[in-house]
């Protein structure tokens, strides 16, 4: 089992969600995130004042998948989240030892 985590532009979230649902992913966790990569330190003007944006708003997606699906899920996310501009985000995969579904107590892949 793997945990796929993606940091993407918030406005790409609907596209990514839709693509993942088409792929067959039934559940995901989405949270608000802020951060920066190579694009750090740009400035914006609002209400007449220029300010530097260190942390750019992002959406964070976390999905538990079976080992065999991990590569394809990453591809789906990358394709749906890509705008071609700086700040499109990152996707990474880490191994998961065990999963438990709280309601039923199921363990392992059947709890995904």
């Amino acid at each position: 089992m793997k945990l796929v985590t993606a940091i993407i532009k918030p406005h790409q979230l609907d596209d990514v969600k839709e693509a993942l649902e088409m792929f067959g992913i039934q559940g995901m966790t989405v949270s608000e995130a802020s951060g920066y990569g190579r694009q750090r330190g740009h400035s914006e003007v609002y209400r007449g004042a220029e300010y530097t944006v260190d942390f750019v708003p992002k959406a964070r997606i976390e999905i538990l998948v079976e080992d065999a699906d991990a590569g394809a899920v990453v591809e789906v996310i990358v394709k749906a989240a890509r705008t071609g501009r700086i700040g499109d985000g990152k996707v990474w995969v880490v191994p998961v030892d065990d999963i438990a579904r709280v309601r039923t107590g199921e363990r392992g892949a059947s709890a995904i």
Binding site: P10, E32, A33, S34, E44, V45, Y46, R47, G48, V53, F55, P57
Partner: peptide, 21 residues
Amino acid sequence: WSPWRAQMLGRLMAAVTAVDA
């Protein structure tokens, strides 16, 4: 009204202001 959402609205308004300017 998290700082995240406030920042998102701020970015949108900054973009509007920039285009207006």
